[in-house]
C-alpha cells in the first residue's frame, strides 16, 4: 500500500467510528484528538479495525504512534507494505 492508500484507510476507519465530523480539514501533523472527538475507546476501535482488515497485531506500547495522521501513516507503512 502507498502512503496515500494508508492515509485513506485510516481516515475511512475514523469515519466509520465518527461520521459526524469533517475529516477533510484534518492537519496530518496535529494530534487527532485535538481536531476531532476521539477518545481512548475510539483508538482501540482503530487498532481493532486494522487487525480485522489486515491481520496486523499492534502492541499496546505502539498506540502512541496513532497520535497524528502522519505518525499513523509512518508507523503503518512498513506493516502494510505488502498488503
Amino acid at each position: 500500500m502507498t502512503r496515500d492508500d494508508i492515509k485513506d484507510v485510516v481516515l475511512e476507519i475514523i469515519e466509520d467510528i465518527n461520521d459526524e465530523e469533517d475529516l477533510s480539514k484534518i492537519d496530518g501533523d496535529k494530534a487527532l484528538r485535538d481536531q476531532i472527538e476521539l477518545d481512548s475507546m475510539d483508538f482501540l476501535d482503530i487498532v481493532m479495525e486494522l487487525r480485522k482488515r489486515f491481520q496486523i497485531q499492534i502492541p499496546e506500547e505502539d498506540y502512541g504512534n496513532f497520535e497524528t495522521l502522519n505518525k499513523s501513516v509512518n508507523y503503518l507503512e512498513p506493516l502494510l507494505a505488502d498488503k
Binding site: M41, L44, D45, M48, R51, K52, Q57
Partner: peptide, 12 residues
C-alpha cells in the same frame, strides 16, 4: 468470522 480468535473480541 475470524476462526474464533478472541483477539477480535471487542473492547466494547
Amino acid at each position: 468470522q475470524f476462526d474464533y480468535n478472541v483477539d477480535y473480541w471487542t473492547h466494547h
